[in-house]
């Protein structure tokens, strides 16, 4: 039985309860640090980004070219057959216009995250990146976009070697 109006356990706290020290709390900031080895597939992908190329992997059994690349095909569960150089263009699969940070602070300039289907990969295979040099109101699904790369000297083998994608 759970009827409306029944009194349940669970006591809601308000800001005032902390200000007036009605309730106590303790704090800690655990410090953890990680260094992620990029691995075989991702290492190759990052090397490609440094050279201004987007690389995918191809499975001949499933006839699929995927990006981000992996060493194995999760469908047929065997090694991928080869590396493929893709284009640095694609189409917007979906996008958002985000006005807040993760901790709910307002952004002065909204960010436009998007899934971009990369030309040369199989249909629907895309990556997450940002759009810029575009009026947010003009962004549409299916819009053609191209990577804007950092100057060669500044690239370091990172997804950020692509600054963003812009419409073409």
């Amino acid at each position: 039985m759970l009827e409306t109006g029944i009194r349940l356990h669970g006591t809601a706290l308000e800001e005032e309860d902390f200000k007036t020290h009605r309730v106590f709390y303790t704090t800690d900031i655990p410090k953890l640090q990680y260094a992620w080895d990029c691995g075989v597939a991702m290492g190759h992908y990052l090397k490609g980004l440094k050279q201004g190329k987007l690389l995918g992997t191809y499975c001949k059994k499933c006839k699929r070219t995927v990006i981000p690349p992996r060493v194995f095909c999760e469908l047929c569960f065997r090694n991928m057959d080869k590396w493929v150089e893709l284009k640095d263009t694609g189409i917007v699969n979906t996008f958002s216009i985000c006005y807040v940070t993760w901790d709910m602070k307002k952004l002065i300039y909204p960010e436009i995250p998007a899934v971009i289907e990369i030309d040369g990969a199989s249909k629907g295979k895309g990556i997450l990146h940002l759009l810029a040099e575009v009026d947010p109101k003009q962004v549409k699904l299916g819009m053609k976009v191209k990577a804007v790369w950092k100057p060669k000297s500044e690239r370091e083998g990172s997804i950020l070697d692509i600054k963003y994608f812009k419409p073409i």
Partner: peptide, 13 residues
């Protein structure tokens, strides 16, 4: 951590 986190995503995205 390699392909997405550098872009600064949040869950709302």
């Amino acid at each position: 951590h390699t392909t997405e986190r550098p872009l600064g995503p949040n869950l709302l995205w």
